[in-house]
């Protein structure tokens, strides 16, 4: 099995002059850096997923605290529920639902792209736009319904 030459169609048609020779002799484009890469929504989706993983880790800490409050009994849980129901608690709760929906949608985009699908310019742009923007309306809808059915109130 012959490997495709990494130089074909690359360095020869290089309009950026930013190709580098790797230690193993392959000539590849320099990895994208903020300074030389044209902005595109796929880039935003990519870095947002990292931010989402970090935010989801913080969210998981809050969930473990919630589990701990439950295990410590009704009094501790009442304190946790009052904190979650306070204006700041509701604000954080809203943020956590944004993070959750972002994690699901952006993780799905990541998985689709990782399996080699959705990588045309059009489809990757659509997937990235969904992953970047859809979590916000979904989270708003989630909380509007929660308030509407009376589960949560201010």
């Amino acid at each position: 099995m012959t490997q495709p030459s990494p130089t074909s169609g690359g360095a020869s048609s290089d309009r950026t002059g930013r190709f580098v020779t790797q230690p193993n002799g392959h000539v590849t484009p320099l990895s994208p850096h903020m300074g030389i890469w044209r902005w595109h929504v796929t880039m935003a989706a990519s870095i947002l997923f990292r931010a989402t993983v970090i935010a989801a880790t913080v969210g998981a800490l809050i969930v473990v605290a919630w589990l701990g409050a439950l295990a410590f009994g009704p009094d501790a849980y009442a304190t946790a529920l009052a904190t979650a129901g306070s204006p700041l608690g509701l604000f954080v709760g809203f943020g956590l639902t944004v993070v959750l929906f972002s994690f699901i949608l952006n993780g799905t985009r990541h998985t689709i792209n990782d399996t080699g699908n959705g990588l045309t310019i059009k489809s990757s742009t659509i997937l990235s736009r969904i992953a970047v923007w859809a979590p916000v309306p979904l989270a708003i809808l989630f909380w509007v319904v929660l308030f509407a059915v009376g589960r949560v109130s201010l």
Partner: peptide
Amino acid sequence: LVVVLPLGLWVASTAFTLAGAGY
């Protein structure tokens, strides 16, 4: 990640079920 994603959907529905619930 593939295992976490469907569980994430379930967590969202669980969060909806348990929001504001008593002990």
